[in-house]
């Protein structure tokens, strides 16, 4: 089989280390002026795609991000990590508020076909909406097999052997190409983009598409009724010794 073309989805999200704040009007969380980065699982997806290229399994890595203008920064990061070119699916900020995996998967599926991709890799979930849906839905729309929560990927002949992280341990499956993968945390350790690579990334091509270019209707499918703070736990107490601790637990009938 000739070298493969890999499409990688990457999402711009609030940085994982930021303590988020819910808006007082309960419509969402505050995103203005908050540090954003590439979704950590998508960094892993990009890294895996770049490694496939370094192993000469892949010939080209195309990074895709769907969202407002600022997504281009996320795509530049992907390019600096080693992606060859990028596609920004430009979403109106108003539509972006209600954009969901069902929409993104339709973009990715259409792009996978247009770009003649053999593998689509996305992170297993975005750390903002915590949906864990996009990869599975993309696979369904393409009628490709899916290998979710991948912690190891190997290619032999026309198949990928994938070790998946499941509830009781690990599972090995084989999927025929073309296929969709979703990356789990332990798939790899993403590289840092070096300064020369960041400079080079500025010259790499970035195409811009709109939802109508791709024939996807971005109408909202769910109405957000409210977004609220979770209940706050009551302040606890410090105990002085293990004995104290066990006595307290015994009194509450927990030990």
């Amino acid at each position: 089989m000739s070298a493969l073309r890999v499409l990688v989805g990457c999402k711009r999200v609030i940085d994982y280390a930021v303590k988020i704040r819910v808006k007082p009007d309960k419509t969402g969380v505050v995103t203005d002026g908050v540090k954003h980065s590439m979704n950590p699982f998508d960094e892993i997806a990009i890294e895996e795609a770049v490694r496939l290229k370094e192993k000469k399994i892949a010939s080209e890595v195309i990074a895709v991000s769907c969202g407002p203008q600022q997504c281009q920064e996320t795509l530049r990061t992907a390019l600096a990590m080693g992606a060859d070119r990028a596609i920004h699916v430009d979403i109106d900020p108003k539509d972006y508020e209600t954009l969901q995996p069902i929409h993104v998967s339709k973009f990715l599926a259409k792009l996978a076909q247009d770009e003649k991709a053999d593998i689509v890799i996305v992170g297993k979930q975005a750390i903002d909406d915590d949906c864990n849906q996009t990869g599975q839905m993309t696979a369904a729309l393409l009628d490709w097999p899916q290998a979710t929560f991948a912690s190891k990927v190997e290619k032999n002949n026309g198949d990928l052997t994938v070790i998946r992280e499941i509830d009781g341990g690990l599972e090995t499956i084989k999927v025929k190409l073309p296929a969709v993968l979703t990356a789990d945390l332990r798939l790899n350790e993403p590289r840092y983009a070096t300064l020369p690579n960041i400079m080079k990334a500025k010259k790499k091509p970035m195409a811009k598409k709109t939802p109508s270019d791709l024939g996807v209707d971005v109408a909202s499918r769910q109405e957000i009724v409210s977004v609220e703070d979770p209940p706050v736990r009551e302040a606890g107490q410090k105990v002085e010794s293990v004995e104290d601790l066990v006595t307290k637990l015994k009194d509450s009938g927990l030990v």
Binding site: I20, I127, D129, Q222, E223, I224, V225, V227, E228
Partner: peptide
């Protein structure tokens, strides 16, 4: 959402 730091109520259409 956001690692359990916000609770979202949604209505499916």
């Amino acid at each position: 959402i956001y690692a359990g730091n916000a609770i979202q109520t949604l209505k499916s259409k």
